[in-house]
């Protein structure tokens, strides 16, 4: 059996369905994670404000504050916090909304336990990736944009903002492969650590988020270009290192 190198990571489980929460808590604890359970939106915010977590597993339909509102609040405080939305709401609109609010991943109920655990592990790989990336090159420049991968701080012209962990990972992967076409499947496998057969649209939503940050006109991208039926290409013509 594979040893879980992320044992001891703290996960906040936000779920109001008692039956599901008990099962999730058992399985996550069994994997070696330390689990804290919040039954509603208010309790979740209270816990987030008073504790440190490595990942948040979040339902959408919650009493008092829904999952979208929680994501928004978390992003203001901690842009790098990995958030996995786990919900019975399956519509494309909800999924896009969740990812746009800043969630890193979205899994619909009912789900396979193995898939959920793999996704959680994939998200927790951030630390390894983070150490690896900062060990190589910390700051990247392209066009008018500046990205600091140590603290995810970015500058685009006069604008400054913070990237989420997943956005940073995606941008870093594109920068490491600049000038090459990167397929959606490749991005899912390397950035999301999940099989490429699963919803490649997630990648498109994150790419559109990056374009909003860095492109002068997100509808006519000059840096992150779409390559028809292939994937994406980060154009290095404007890059000034």
């Amino acid at each position: 059996m594979e040893i879980n190198s992320f044992k001891g990571s703290r996960i906040l489980l936000v779920e109001d369905e008692e039956s599901l929460a008990v099962g999730l808590e058992y399985n996550l604890t069994d994997e070696g994670y330390i689990v804290d359970w919040a039954k509603d939106g208010r309790a979740a915010i209270k816990k987030i404000n008073s504790n440190e977590y490595d990942l948040i597993l979040l339902d959408i339909m919650l009493p008092y504050l829904n999952g979208f509102e929680i994501t928004e609040k978390v992003r203001l405080k901690s842009p790098q916090m990995p958030i996995l939305i786990l919900t019975a709401r399956t519509s494309a609109e909800d999924k896009i909304k969740g990812l746009e609010y800043g969630a890193d991943d979205y899994l619909t109920k009912p789900f396979h336990l193995k898939e959920l655990l793999l996704r959680i592990k994939g998200m927790l790989k951030r630390k390894t990736w983070y150490n690896h990336s900062t060990g190589q090159q910390r700051k990247y420049f392209f066009g008018n944009n500046e990205v600091d991968f140590e603290n995810f701080k970015c500058k685009s012209g006069t604008k400054t903002f913070l990237l989420t962990q997943r956005e940073a990972m995606l941008l870093k992967y594109l920068l490491d492969n600049k000038g090459k076409i990167v397929t959606r499947k490749e991005l899912l496998a390397n950035v999301w650590q999940i099989s490429g057969e699963v919803e490649t649209r997630t990648v498109d939503i994150f790419i559109s988020r990056l374009r909003k940050y860095f492109e002068p006109d997100p509808n006519k991208p000059v840096y992150i270009k779409s390559i028809r039926s292939s994937g994406y290409l980060l154009n290095d013509q404007n890059e000034i290192q």
């Binding site: 369905e17 039956s19 599901l20 099962g23 999730l24 058992y26 399985n27 339909m61 019975a88 709401r89 399956t90 519509s91 109920k109 009912p110 789900f111 396979h112 336990l113 193995k114």
Partner: peptide, 20 residues
């Protein structure tokens, strides 16, 4: 949308326990 949510919640819990 509501009925789907109400059906899927207990269903996902059942699936989770069976997987477990």
């Amino acid at each position: 949308a509501n009925i789907t949510h109400e059906l899927k919640s207990p269903l996902s819990s059942l699936q989770l326990y069976l997987d477990t």
